[in-house]
Design a protein around this nucleic acid. Structure first.
Lengths: 188, 188, 188, 188
DNA sequence: AATGAATGAGGTTTCATTCAT
DNA sequence: GATGAATGAAACCTCATTCAT
C-alpha cells in the first residue's frame, strides 16, 4: 500500500506541476506562443512526460477548468441552500464568483482556444442555481413576474462579468451598484 | 478627389481581398488552424503578397477591427445628435450596435487572439457618447443622480454584449427586456 | 548633345549611388544580410532600377573593385616610372597601397563572396610592376640573385597586407620595420 | 572515465556528421549556396536535427574552427618545448602550421562569413608561443634586438599565410625561401 | 513512468525577379 | 529609364510526436 501511494502521489504531482506551468505560461506568453516543451521545461520534466498525462495543449485547459468548476460548484450549492433571501443569495454569489474568477481570469480567457460549444461545460449548473433562486424570489413575491428567468440570469451574469472587467471602479463597490440597478429593475 | 489610378485601386482591392479571406477563414476554421497561405489562396494571391500588406495574422484582425470601428463611429455620432429622448437614444444605440456586432460577431471573437490590453482602441469614444447621453438624462431629471456614469455605461455595455451572446432569446427581444430592467433600475 | 549628356550623367549618378549604397551596406550588415531592396532603399531608388545597372549583388562588387583597380593602376605606374631607387619605390608603393587599401578595406573583404579565381583581376598588373622593380634592383646589383622574383613579390605583398591588418602597431611605423626586414633579407 | 553510453555516443556522432557535411558542402558549393537541409541530407539526418546542435550555419563554422584550434595548440606547445634552436622551431612551426592549414584551407576561408572581429579566437596563444621563441633567440644572441617582437611575429605569420596562398610556388619550397629572407632580415 | 534526441511535416518568411504602368 | 506590387520558389525554423533507453 505504501509504495503504491507514493507512486500515485508522484503521478499527481507531475500532473499538477504540468497544469500549473501550462496555465502560467499561457497567460504570460499566450497560448500559441507556448510550446509543449516550454511547459515541460517550466515544470522541470522531460518533453515526453507531458504525453503521459495529456493528449494536447488544449487538454490541459480542459483539465484545469474542470478542476475549477468542481470547486465552484461546491460553493454555489452551499449558498443556494442557505437561509438567506434571494437577493442576498445573489449578492453572495456575485461575491464569491467574483473572487473565483478574479483568481482564474487568465484561465477563462483560454476558453477561446477550445473548439466552440465546448465552452461552458458547467454553465448550465450555474444557470440552474440562479434560476432556482429567481423562482424562489417569485414565490416570495419579491420579483416582477413579467421577465423571463433566462433574461434575468443573463443580466446577472453580464453585470458580474462587467464588474470583473472594469478598470474604473473596484469590484466590490462596482458589483454592489450594478446589482442595485438590477434588483431595482426586477423587483416589484 | 478620388483620383486613384489603376495601380492604387488594385492595391486597395488586394488588401480588401486578403482581409475578407482572412476573417472568413478565421471564423470557419479557427485562427490558429488558418495559415497565411490558406489566406492568400482564398484571396487568389501569392503567398508573398500577404507580407506587402500585413506583418502577421494578428495584424489582419487589428486592421479589420479598425475599419469596423470607423464605421460604427459615424452611426453613433448621428444618434447622439438626434432629437430623441436619452432612453430612446440608448435603445437606438443598442439596436444598431447589435446589428453591427451581429454582422461582425466572428470578428469580435478574434480579439482573444490579440495580446491583451490592445482590445478596445475605441471604447473611449463609445463611452464618451454614452456618458453625454446619461448626462442629458440627468439634466432632464429622467435618471437617478446617485449612480456614477461609468457604472451605467458599463452596465449598458454589459447588457448589450450579453444580449448579443445569448443563445436562448433572440437579440431584438432580448435587448428590449434587458434595457427595460436597466432603465427601470436607473430611472427616478 | 545637351539632352543626351544630362541623361548620361543621371545614369552614371544612379549607378554610383547604387554602388556606394551597396558597399556601405555590405560592410555594415554583411553581404548576405543585405538585400537588393536594402540597396535601392539606401540609394533612394526603386527596386527594379537596380536591374538596369547590375545583374546581381555580386556584380556590384566586381564593378566597385574594377573602379578601384583603375585608380590604383594610375598611381602604380607613376611610381614605377619615377627616378627613385628600387628600394625607395617599394617604400612608396607600400605607402600608397596602404592608403588605398585602408580606404577600401571592407571592399576587399567582399572578394570572398565572389566565385574563386575571379579574385585578383589585376593582381597580375601589380605583380608585373613589382617584378620590373625587382629586376631593376638586380641590374643595379642591389638585390641577391638567388631568390625568385615571385617569392619576393609575394613576400612584399604579405608584409603589406600584414601591416594593414595589424592592430598593435600603426601602419606607417609597421610597414617601415617590415620592409626593413625584407630589404635586409634580400639585399646583397 | 570515457563512460559514454550509447545515447551520448550517438549524439557526438551526429554533431560530427553535421559538421563534416557542412564544411564539405561549404567548400564545394559555397557557403550561401548551401542550405541547412543540404547539410542534413548530406549527413543523413532530418532537417530539424540540425537545430539540436547549432543555431545557424555560421555556428557550424565557429564550432569546426574551435576544434581545429584545439588540435593546433597541442602541436605548437610540443614544438615550443623541444630542444631545437629558435630558427629551427620557426621552421617546424611553419611546416606543421602549413600542413594543418592546408588540410583545412577551405575551413579558414569560411571565416569571411562570420561577423568581423570574431576571427582569431586563438591568435593570442599562437602569438605568445612565437614571442617566447623570439625571446629565446634574443637571449642566445641569434636575433637583432632593435625589432619589436610583435613585428617579427606578424611578419612570420604573413610569410606563412602568403606561402599557403601562393599559386605559383609549392608550399614547402615557398616557405623555406620566405623564412630564409625573414631570418636573414632579423639575424645579427 | 521518465527521458530527450530524432523526426519531418508544415508553417513562416524572405527576396530576386518580372512587368505593367 | 524608373517604378514598386506581385510573384512563388526556396529558404528558414518550429514543434508535436515518437520511441529506444
Amino acid at each position: 500500500m505504501e509504495k503504491l501511494n507514493r507512486r500515485e502521489r508522484k503521478k499527481i504531482l507531475a500532473q499538477q506541476a504540468l497544469t500549473e506551468a501550462a496555465i502560467r505560461l499561457f497567460s504570460e506568453k499566450g497560448f500559441s506562443q507556448t510550446s509543449i516543451s516550454d511547459i515541460t521545461n517550466e515544470a522541470d520534466l522531460a518533453t515526453g512526460t507531458f504525453y503521459n498525462y495529456f493528449q494536447s495543449k488544449e487538454d490541459v485547459i480542459r483539465y484545469a477548468i474542470s478542476v475549477k468548476i468542481e470547486e465552484a460548484g461546491e460553493v454555489l450549492r452551499e449558498i443556494k441552500n442557505s437561509d438567506d433571501s434571494p437577493s442576498n443569495k445573489l449578492f453572495m454569489i456575485s461575491k464569491s464568483a467574483g473572487q473565483l474568477m478574479n483568481r482564474n481570469i487568465s484561465l477563462f480567457k483560454l476558453l477561446a482556444h477550445l473548439p466552440p460549444m465546448t465552452s461552458p461545460p458547467h454553465g448550465s449548473e450555474f444557470k440552474d442555481i440562479l434560476t432556482s433562486i429567481i423562482e424562489e424570489g417569485w414565490r416570495r413575491g419579491d420579483y416582477k413576474k413579467d421577465l423571463p428567468a433566462p433574461i434575468i440570469c443573463e443580466a446577472f451574469m453580464a453585470m458580474l462579468q462587467s464588474a470583473m472587467m472594469s478598470r474604473s471602479i473596484p469590484f466590490e463597490e462596482n458589483i454592489k451598484l450594478k446589482l442595485t440597478i438590477l434588483l431595482e429593475g426586477i423587483s416589484t
